[in-house]
Write a protein that binds this DNA or RNA. Sequence first.
DNA 1: CGAACGAATGAATGTCAATTCACTCGATTC
DNA 2: GAATCGAGTGAATTGACATTCATTCGTTCG
Lengths: 220, 220
Amino acid sequence: MPYRRTESVIRRLAAREQAILDAARIEAARGGMAAVQIIPVAGRAGIATGTVYRYFPAKADLVSQLIADVAERELDAMRAAAGAAPGPLSALAAAIATFAARAMSERKLAWAVMAEPAEPEADAARRDFRAALSDELQQRMRVAIVRGYLPGQDVTIAAPAIVGALLEGLIGPMAPAVDDDPAKTREAVQTATLLCLRALGVGDARAFGLVAQLPLGRRD
Amino acid sequence: MPYRRTESVIRRLAAREQAILDAARIEAARGGMAAVQIIPVAGRAGIATGTVYRYFPAKADLVSQLIADVAERELDAMRAAAGAAPGPLSALAAAIATFAARAMSERKLAWAVMAEPAEPEADAARRDFRAALSDELQQRMRVAIVRGYLPGQDVTIAAPAIVGALLEGLIGPMAPAVDDDPAKTREAVQTATLLCLRALGVGDARAFGLVAQLPLGRRD
DNA sequence: CGAACGAATGAATGTCAATTCACTCGATTC
DNA sequence: GAATCGAGTGAATTGACATTCATTCGTTCG
């Protein structure tokens, strides 16, 4: 008779898989994608190296899953923030600012997950993340354009450009250091959001108003 | 008595070093940074693998030099274009558009040199490139701000944000395909430049006027 | 309780590139 | 033109990781 998986075993397996992903995320947040290596990850998760392969057939699968997990959280947060906004333009502003603020709170992880290359297979996961991010912005931009809040424009260029501006402007190697100063961080997020809104054709005065009203500063 | 380096020997050595760099650039343009490997590069340059090490102590040095070379060309082109412009704002527009147009003409190489990670040492060269690019834009932005052409703003965020917007919007994995269609390419460059100018606070109408006047479409 | 099973282990192995080095060969010197 | 220099060669070495697998260990079943 085939063996049955007890409730507790199922829980343990799931917990272990999560522990591996958590360990990978911590490594990535510390040393970038290059630091996501099987032996250290296994060590941090408190298991043997071989065990990692019971949960993920190859390292690329682990990395892909890590990226997908982070992506899901970020997209959820953006949608939640945008959904709570009163109109299309403030929804767009909220989505942008939320992404910016969350990326700032985990700069290295955000950079590793979005910008650092790795195995080609993991690249697909990153592509998906970026595509989803762009899509999210594109949707909201289209609504805003149709309703006359934004001038007509090529959203297939504008949306990724916004993503790039936020990444480079806030968490890229050239971005100004904000250390962990919450005031500086907040200000940087506002500056970047303002810049993005203007880039999309929101008038200076109106953009300023939108940014001033943003409910910044929450955490997951 | 120490050996003298004949004129012809000096020329041959210089030519060979250039051949190695050219080979590396071709590989990068084809397959990204991952394709810059010593054996293929040596093969393409028509020499043995060991010979590469007579010219570059380590692969990281070769990659760094490659990045620095590309950076120098791009910065020169930007400065030349900006220098030929009639005023601070059109100079800024010209610098942005020139960078955008040139990156588009060698998308994969531009991406490899600016965005793909590699050895940590090569990362320093990329950092320098980005810093120089940001600096170039910052200088021009400051001038434009002082003379009242642009609203006051944090240029240390704005400059890298512009770079990021161009990279992601035009040559990143999410950017729309333009294949080799010159009309599409030209239009994409205009769209992206317009977006950048608006991001910096140039009014929509004026930005449109600046972009329309850009002398686009030259090559090195 | 004692098979039987699947999960866990981690040392050993495989893989992929960078790097080395003992040797060859053409150029330079006297 | 013989002696010497130093560039060029490429097979072999090294190093850094990912991946495997024979074995151990804890659970589940009869």
